[in-house]
């Protein structure tokens, strides 16, 4: 797909951008008194389906489906699609491995993917026909499956699959030939590696664990990051401060939620550069990710309202929006 083939897709996206939630909308939702009020506000903005009474879960699920449908309708090339949707494929793989190995029913956990549904993944894992998986997923699936079967260590299974996902996203980003997607995949890996290191430092994980969990990526020396996180939280903070992540270190000192917010805002700042493009995959990808961000934001607010969180608590978790 040449750049000029994106002109239609980008124009379509630009028309849709005016319906994205703005920072002002999020502030308004944060100040609302109840979950019901937020649901009504979102329904007025066209969220959910035409059903009169919708709960938060069905509304958010409907929005996720709409977002995936747009991506399919725009017929983006496979490499572009991969960068955006691989996390869902690897999520289904993770859920499938756990369902097979623990014999528990993970219904409702799987993403409803046309070509990688719960039925598909469970069948492949049951028959151990890993060759039927996408090529980038085969070795990761085999390794995670065997480790889960031998040790029943769900966390270790998670880190192997998550690392495989990050590496596949980086490869897809490079293969897409689009500077924004390449940068997003790398930036996402950097942010995720720092998140993993922060959690590992907090829970006192070993260097071996970190070596297995951190995905190599440009812009981050994962060995040094792992060593610093394995030493102590202070070690990690000083590594981050000395390697261009001062704001991240400050957020980490403040609270885990402030740090998560910094991670998401860092990715969003990268996406916002796509607001001016007219003919590349970047704006399409940025719109898809911006929609995912607003769905995540709506979920945070709805959950917080349902659980009686204060406005201040919610504000601490509110991320920057795309528009």
């Amino acid at each position: 797909m040449s750049n000029s083939d994106y002109i239609f897709a980008v124009a379509r996206i630009r028309a849709r951008e005016k319906w994205l939630l703005s920072d002002a909308d999020v502030r308004q939702m944060t100040a609302m008194k109840s979950e019901g009020e937020v649901l009504t506000f979102l329904a007025d903005k066209g969220w959910g389906t035409s059903d009169a009474a919708q709960d938060a879960d069905s509304m958010l699920e409907a929005e996720e489906k709409k977002n995936h449908r747009i991506l399919r309708e725009l017929k983006v090339p496979k490499a572009v699609h991969d960068v955006l949707s691989l996390p869902q494929y690897y999520h289904n793989l993770k859920a499938g491995i756990k369902e097979i190995c623990t014999s528990e029913d993970f219904e409702g956990v799987f993403y409803d993917l046309e070509d990688f549904s719960k039925k598909d993944v469970v069948k492949i894992l049951q028959e151990k026909t890993f060759y039927r998986l996408p090529e980038h997923m085969q070795s990761t699936a085999k390794e995670a499956y065997e480790i889960m079967l031998q040790t029943m260590d769900g966390q270790r299974c998670d880190i192997i699959v998550d690392r495989g996902c990050l590496e596949a996203m980086i490869s897809a980003g490079r293969a897409s030939g689009d500077a924004m997607l390449k940068s997003y995949a790398e930036s996402n890996a950097v942010t995720t590696d720092i998140k993993i290191a922060a959690r590992a430092a907090r829970t006192g994980k070993s260097v071996h664990f970190l070596k297995e969990a951190l995905a190599p990526c440009a812009g981050l020396d994962v060995k040094a990051l792992g060593d610093a996180a394995a030493r102590s939280e202070e070690g990690l903070l000083s590594y981050l401060e000395g390697h261009g992540f001062r704001e991240g270190a400050e957020a980490l000192k403040q609270s885990p939620s402030a740090f998560e917010k910094w991670c998401d805002n860092r990715l969003m700042a990268n996406l916002k550069l796509q607001k001016r493009g007219t003919d590349s995959a970047g704006p399409v990808a940025a719109y898809y990710l911006a929609r995912q961000n607003e769905i995540k934001m709506a979920r945070i607010i709805l959950t917080a309202k349902a659980n009686g969180f204060t406005e201040e608590d919610i504000r601490e978790r509110v991320r920057d929006m795309y528009v």
Partner: peptide, 17 residues
Amino acid sequence: GVAGQAAAGVVSEDPGQ
């Protein structure tokens, strides 16, 4: 031609334009 592609993209979402 290129402007037409962009115009079609907008009209597919917002026929009022």
